[in-house]
């Protein structure tokens, strides 16, 4: 169905540029082989169990709690990344300070570091005998092996998504607009709120949604720091692994399907946001 609607060049403006058919054909083929076919295997496997069983699996307290932990903490991590990510972007784009380039470069590190290494490194830092954990312990704050630990790991892996989405937009913002606002008597805070913020809002939301989507599925970095106690610090991807350990593939894929559908909905939302921002961009 999807393939059919996509390959019909209905309503396409007649273009003199060649290669539409072949490039779209190759794109769809490659996409199907690498992404769609594998993901469809999830649904095929899930269809082995009855609808009642499926509903029972995804609505069991254990599953719901794991989903709640994953989605709830991902949301919290994305919000924190949004706030601090914006502050980081602002500092990187607007101000000069020593080692600005180096600081800019380390933002990509969460992409390159294997998630397991990130998890191990974060756990050793935030455990009660770690560099940071030992400072927090006297205050009664425990990070490693609590939900707070999961939050730290999710912030780590999500931050570049916010920074790298917002950074180019802020860098590209026309300075004249702000100057004009200022010359019309707007205070600095008003200028930021009424001129700068609306301009970067779509990018902020996009970065937020990407960081959120990425965090929901995260496994490698979280399991080291989480504690993995059922009903407390057990994340949904771990529950998938547990079902696999019980040799119950269909149960595992049922949970995976729910997560996949949630991710897909999210990403559609992201692309809506982009469209919205594009339209605003051309409208202005």
């Amino acid at each position: 169905m999807i393939t059919e609607t996509l390959s019909l060049p209905v309503g396409r403006q007649r273009s003199v540029i060649p290669g539409f058919g072949i490039t779209l054909g190759l794109t769809l083929t490659w996409l199907s082989v690498i992404v769609l076919l594998p993901l469809s295997a999830l649904f095929i496997k899930t269809s082995e169990i009855s609808l009642e069983r499926f509903i029972a699996i995804v609505t069991s307290t254990r599953t719901l709690h794991a989903l709640q932990v994953s989605f709830g903490l991902s949301l919290a991590a994305a919000v924190l990344n949004l706030i601090f990510g914006t502050i980081v972007v602002w500092a990187l784009v607007r101000y000069d300070f020593p080692f600005r380039r180096v600081v800019d470069a380390i933002i990509d590190i969460p992409f390159a570091l294997p998630t397991a290494v990130a998890g191990i490194a974060l756990t050793s830092l935030y455990a009660e005998n770690g560099w940071v954990g030992s400072l927090l312990a006297p205050l009664g704050i425990k990070v490693a092996f609590t939900q707070l630990g999961i939050l730290v790991a999710l912030i780590f892996i999500g931050l570049p998504f916010v920074v790298r989405t917002v950074q180019p937009v802020l860098a590209d913002l026309d300075a004249e607009l702000e100057e004009a606002a200022a010359s019309l008597g707007a205070s600095r805070w008003e200028t930021i709120r009424r001129v700068v913020l609306p301009a970067i809002l779509p990018a902020l939301l996009t970065g937020f949604a990407l960081a959120f989507a990425r965090a929901v599925g995260e496994y490698g970095s979280v399991i080291f720091i989480a504690g993995n106690l059922p009903g407390q610090t057990e994340i949904a991807p771990l529950l998938i692994v547990i079902r696999l350990e019980e040799f119950r593939y269909a149960d595992a894929t049922a949970i995976a399907c729910v997560m996949l559908l949630a991710s897909f909905t999210l990403l559609l939302l992201i692309n809506r946001l982009q469209r919205w921002s594009e339209m605003r961009g051309t409208g202005a």
């Binding site: 050793s124 455990a127 009660e128 005998n129 770690g130 092996f145 399991i223 993995n228 106690l229």
Partner: peptide, 21 residues
């Protein structure tokens, strides 16, 4: 009484030995 359930035996050993838990 278990504050952590690591996914593997070696993970637990590291938690006990290295993290001091």
């Amino acid at each position: 009484n278990a504050p952590v359930l690591d996914t593997g035996a070696r993970g637990s050993t590291v938690t006990f030995v290295e993290r001091g838990i």
